[in-house]
Design a protein around this nucleic acid. Structure first.
Lengths: 195, 195
DNA sequence: GCCGGAACTTGTCAATGCCTAGATGCCGGG
DNA sequence: CCCGGCATCTAGGCATTGACAAGTTCCGGC
């Protein structure tokens, strides 16, 4: 569909082709370098073709964010406990850097988009259910804060990793493994409480 | 210099005027909405005037990042212990959202800029010295990971706060205070170890 | 077989980044 | 005092981009 028959008037799966190209550009050069006309050239279509599928440049980025939240929810759902959910969080960021960046930059996409909202709700639910199986101790207030703490830890690690700020601190060590032991240090200092 | 005498050929302090306007735009509409020509209009100068002070659009953002790291280093230096340094981290992000965003988006600025490098080194030093007064326990490996954990926690909280992801979790609560008790929960669960 | 709409193209316009050449006025040496 | 150098700012132009409008091609259902 994509590589052979290039003579047809219709592309076949232009939407996916544009999305994939966009992810490539964002991952390598950042969201600022994204150009609809450039993506059109890469796909071998006219400069206005992408607009038919995504309306806007913002529309394209909104689609990226929505797809990202969907993949994110799937990635989180597979993890057994809270710590592994954090590892999955970090792994997702490392595996899908373009999605991750766009997801957490509100000025790039339309946060009120319906598709994005449902995917985002699914991901949020996956996060919350992970926090649910925490230590039973503490008042409700503390439990909520603990959830925020876990989220902050994973999100901060993922963000710093993507921005290259952990390069020398990790020193070639595997990021996932580093986060696993880091989470152990933080959330279960002396006993298995964090589990 | 800035408001009264607008008839002079020379602006007086155009560089600062452009920087301030840029910070305003970035804080309200995000870095993507930044336009050199728009900033020139706001300052009442010609459309090419900003280029003389910052060379590029990237040059302007590099200057923002450099200024950000300098202010960041000052903010961190004032904190007495590790936890308050984390609070200062979060406060800086909340107080200087534009600086913070540009600082931690490598695709927006030139990371090898000399001015940026020295400011960044100063901020990094302020962070490291904060981690130094941690619990004496653990091998050197664990200590480094603990530092990364503290950094991740503060950075993640700050980032999530700026992206509006903590709005309902905090429920109108003061972010700094929330982070203070959150850090207590995380780094000193039952004893004063985290201090 | 035909026809309605989706997918894509072509053409256009305003805005932007960046470059070059020129105008202006400040500041210090003579 | 003045005059020449120079940083600062202006003016104009060019290529690229996002967005819009109108036309073209093709697929699938009736």
């Amino acid at each position: 569909m994509t590589s052979e028959r290039e003579r047809t008037y219709h592309h076949g799966d232009l939407r996916r082709a544009i999305l994939t190209a966009a992810l490539d550009v964002i991952a390598t050069e950042g969201p600022a370098a994204l150009s609809l006309r450039d993506l059109a050239r890469r796909a071998g279509v006219s400069h206005a073709a992408p607009a038919h599928h995504f309306k806007d440049r913002t529309g394209l980025l909104t689609a990226v964010a929505a797809e990202g939240y969907a993949l994110f929810a799937d990635a989180l759902a597979g993890a057994p406990d809270l710590r592994e959910r954090g590892v999955a969080y970090v792994r997702f960021a490392a595996t899908h850097p373009a999605h991750f960046q766009v997801m957490f930059q509100p000025d790039l996409h339309r946060a009120d988009d319906p598709d994005l909202l449902v995917a985002r709700a699914r991901a949020t639910e996956a996060l919350r259910s992970g926090v649910a199986d925490l230590p039973p101790a503490g008042r409700g207030e503390d439990d909520r804060l603990t959830g925020v703490a876990a989220w902050s830890l994973a999100h901060g690690f993922a963000t710093l990793l993507l921005t290259g700020n952990l390069a020398d601190a990790l020193a070639g060590r595997d990021p996932e493994e580093a986060f696993r032991s880091l989470a152990a240090l933080t959330f279960a200092p002396e006993d298995g409480r964090g589990r």
